[in-house]
């Protein structure tokens, strides 16, 4: 296996708080790599640096062998990195289908096209519908996004990540705020994606993480204290001490 994403010695602090402390991470192509850690461990900060929303203070990020450390977010997206947001981030004023179609449109060449109605462009609409059907939201395609439930918004986030066609999906707590049943549905859905997409998953739901992940990295106070298979992590003494709080 080869690494699709590499970070070396990544550091980021906010004032006196070190949110990312010398993080070297390797995500292999096709794996589902989970990052766990207590609240405030710097998980979202790490994702934001990978997606380009934040610039690291030092260190290097490589994607598909290319140094992307200083690339702006929109260029990284074009290279094949997408992220979902912990706090739902959608265009509320648009329909569900419009939201997803924008993700398809983003990889369909530039959008400086002023005449043809976007909603009449078959291949954009069809691809978006496909993604929606994939997550089971196709019946809601024409609904206003603001009218959907929280659970449906979470599904939309996934549909958009799918529709973007990205090779690497950074999923920031996709289960946040979901009931047990919805969580289970999402877990089994993410299972079906395994092997097709590389996924870097941040999640608090430990059952979900251990059911899904090929490998897990444990982040505590901005540092990665262990990386390994779910079995290795479960039995790692440091992890048990630092994260699970056991003596």
């Amino acid at each position: 296996m080869s690494a699709i994403l590499n970070t070396s010695a990544l550091c980021k602090s906010f004032g006196g708080v070190t949110a990312t402390d010398n993080v070297s991470l390797e995500v292999e192509a096709g794996e589902l790599h989970a990052i766990i850690g207590p609240n405030g461990a710097g998980k979202t900060t790490l994702i934001s640096q990978l997606s380009g929303a934040l610039r690291p203070d030092s260190g290097v990020i490589e994607f598909k062998g290319q140094d992307i450390t200083t690339q702006p977010a929109h260029k990284r997206a074009r290279l094949g990195i997408t992220r979902s947001f912990q706090i739902t981030s959608l265009v509320m004023g648009m329909s569900v289908l419009d939201n997803v179609a924008l993700a398809v449109q983003a990889r369909d060449g530039h959008s400086f096209r002023f005449i043809k109605p976007a909603r009449k462009i078959r291949h954009l609409r069809d691809a978006a519908m496909q993604s929606l059907a994939h997550v089971g939201l196709d019946a809601r395609a024409d609904t206003a996004t603001s009218a959907l439930s929280h659970g449906e918004h979470r599904q939309m986030e996934i549909a958009i990540a799918l529709a973007s066609g990205a090779d690497l999906m950074l999923l920031d707590e996709p289960m946040a705020g979901l009931g047990p049943e919805e969580s289970n549905t999402l877990v089994s859905f993410l299972k079906t994606l395994k092997g097709q997409r590389t996924i870097l998953l941040i999640e608090h739901d430990m059952d979900a993480v251990f059911a899904l992940a090929d490998r897990i990295s444990v982040l505590v106070y901005g540092r990665i204290i262990a990386t390994g298979t779910p079995g290795e992590i479960r039995n790692n003494a440091d992890v048990r001490h630092a994260y699970l709080g056991e003596e």
Partner: peptide, 28 residues
């Protein structure tokens, strides 16, 4: 025409949620 075109969709998307549009790869 502009508002309903692909350009217009990007423009309106950037109004509703600029962060999302950047994440999708648009140089808003």
């Amino acid at each position: 025409l502009i508002v309903n075109s692909r350009f217009g969709m990007v423009l309106q998307g950037a109004k509703g949620n600029p962060e999302r549009m950047v994440t999708l790869g648009y140089n808003i």
